[in-house]
């Protein structure tokens, strides 16, 4: 299964999908030192986004969140790629300044949590569902 999206920041990467049905706020919502989602009541609360292909509808919250993504990258705790339904300023700017591959305009509901994905610029391929 493949999806074609819009490239926000280009790159080629493979990794495991971590899917959130809810928007993500990086500033205040993700701990920049551990990569763990700390927003109370968030579907990903307690999960670590480091090294994952982070899939969520869109960003929310303070524009300082772009800098949080940058800090995650410097700490080696950033997601390996980001897939959005609709990218907005905070996530897009964060991905560019941190050089994290980012694709949007993707029907994210079709991506199974835990699936192995390959991203090559705007093309996302499903390598393996999470069947184990």
């Amino acid at each position: 299964m493949n999806w074609h999206g819009r490239v926000i920041f280009e790159g080629i990467v493979s990794g495991k999908a971590l899917v959130s049905s809810q928007p993500v706020s990086f500033f205040g919502g993700v701990d920049p030192d551990s990569g763990i989602v700390v927003e109370k009541g968030h579907p990903l609360e307690g999960k670590c986004i480091s090294g994952m292909v982070l899939v969520f509808p869109t960003g929310k919250g303070s524009t300082v969140g772009s800098y949080t993504l940058y800090r995650l990258k410097k700490n080696g705790k950033a997601p390996s790629a980001i897939i959005n339904a609709q990218a907005e300023t905070i996530t897009a700017v964060g991905c560019i300044i941190s050089e994290i591959p980012c694709v949007d305009s993707i029907p994210i509901g079709e991506i199974p949590d835990g699936a192995q994905l390959h991203i090559e610029n705007g093309l996302i391929s499903l390598l393996r569902n999470n069947l184990e």
Binding site: S62, T63, V64, Y67, T68, Y70, I97
Partner: peptide, 16 residues
């Protein structure tokens, strides 16, 4: 330009 207070920027913003 906003995002000037270190209280909001934190170490991440300063590094950038």
């Amino acid at each position: 330009i906003a995002g000037v207070s270190y209280d909001n920027l934190g170490e991440a913003g300063l590094e950038y």
